[in-house]
C-alpha cells in the first residue's frame, strides 16, 4: 500500500507548527498504524531528518499512551480501537490521511503528535482515589459487593486515560474521563465515605485546568477505545447535584 500522510510537525511547545506531507510506501495491510509510522520514521532518521514523535508504549491498547487524530477522528476510523491496535487493512491504497495531535488547551503539544496529559493525573490527585493507606484494609470478603455493582465499576474503571474523549469533544471537555473515575469509585461500597467530596474536588480541578464543559454531544463516548458511555456523565452530574443539595456524609 502507498499512502499520503499530512502530519502535524512541531518541534517544541513554543514552536508554530505546520502540516508536512510524507509519502508512506510499501505498507503491509498487517501492520498496525504505529508500525506504519515506524517505517516512515526509519526512513526519516536515515535521511538525517527527525522522526515523527508520537507517544506509544504497550502497543496492545491498554496503556493509553498512544493516540492522535486521523482525518479528524480520535484514534482513527475503527470503533473501540486505539491507534496501536488499528491495522492498515482498514485503509485503502492511495488514501490521504491527516494526522494531528489531540487539541486542547489543557493538553499542550510537547512535540509533533505528543501532548502533555498530566492534567489527567491532577484530576486523579484531586480525589480519584479511595483513602486506604497500606496496611489498614479489612479482610477482603468482609466487603460484599453485588456483582452488578462490581461489573459497573469495572466498566468505568476500564478507562485507559488516553485523552481521546477530550480530543473529540467540541468543547475539549474532560467530563468522560472524570466521570469514569467518579463512577468506578462511586458505585463501590468502599468509595462511599468520600463520594461527595470526591466528585466536587475532581470537577473543580477539571474546571481549573481549563477543560471545557459538557454539552452532551456524545463524541467522547463514540471514540472511547474502551466504550465508556455517556451514562457515566449522567452519574457524575447526579452526584454533583446531590453533593450541592444534600449535606452530611458522602452517601449521595
Amino acid at each position: 500500500m502507498n499512502l499520503t500522510l499530512d502530519v502535524w510537525r512541531q518541534r517544541h511547545a513554543g514552536d508554530q507548527g505546520r502540516i508536512v506531507r510524507y509519502q508512506a510506501g510499501g505498507i503491509s495491510p498487517d501492520m498496525s498504524f504505529l508500525e506504519m509510522l515506524d517505517v516512515v520514521n526509519e526512513g526519516l532518521i536515515l535521511g538525517g531528518d527527525e522522526p515523527i514523535a508520537f507517544d506509544h508504549d504497550c502497543r496492545e491498547g491498554i496503556c493509553g499512551m498512544c493516540g492522535f487524530m486521523i482525518n479528524g477522528i480520535a484514534h482513527g476510523p475503527e470503533r473501540a480501537t486505539t491507534v496501536c491496535q488499528l491495522h492498515m487493512r482498514h485503509f485503502r491504497d492511495g488514501d490521504s490521511l491527516t494526522i494531528e495531535p489531540w487539541r486542547a488547551g489543557a493538553f499542550p503539544v510537547v512535540r509533533d503528535l505528543i501532548v502533555d496529559r498530566s492534567a489527567f493525573d491532577r484530576i486523579i490527585a484531586a480525589g480519584g482515589f479511595i483513602s486506604a493507606s497500606t496496611g489498614s484494609a479489612p479482610e477482603a470478603n468482609n466487603i460484599a459487593v453485588p456483582k452488578q455493582d462490581a461489573d459497573s465499576a469495572m466498566d468505568a474503571a476500564a478507562c485507559i486515560g488516553c485523552g481521546a474523549c477530550v480530543a473529540a469533544c467540541p468543547n475539549a471537555s474532560a467530563m468522560l474521563f472524570t466521570a469514569a473515575k467518579v463512577v468506578h469509585l462511586g458505585v463501590l461500597p468502599q468509595g462511599q465515605p468520600e463520594r461527595k467530596g470526591r466528585v466536587k474536588a475532581m470537577v473543580e480541578t477539571m474546571d481549573g485546568l481549563g477543560f471545557g464543559h459538557c454539552t452532551n454531544i456524545g463524541e467522547c463516548a463514540a471514540v472511547c477505545p474502551k466504550e465508556i458511555g455517556m451514562d457515566t456523565i449522567a452519574f457524575l452530574n447526579r452526584d454533583l447535584a446531590r453533593s450541592a443539595v444534600l449535606t452530611g456524609n458522602g452517601r449521595a
Binding site: D6, W8, G17, I19, M69, N71, G72, I73, T98, E100, R103, A104, G105, A106, V109, A168, P170, N171, A172, S173, G210, F211, G212, H213, T215, I217, G218, E219, A222, V223
Partner: peptide, 20 residues
C-alpha cells in the same frame, strides 16, 4: 467562551463521528 478557550488551536481536518 470557556469552550472556545479550551481549544485554542483548531483541527486542520475536523471530523464528526456521531454527533447529531
Amino acid at each position: 467562551l470557556r469552550s472556545r478557550a479550551a481549544r485554542p488551536v483548531r483541527y486542520v481536518h475536523p471530523g464528526v463521528v456521531q454527533a447529531s
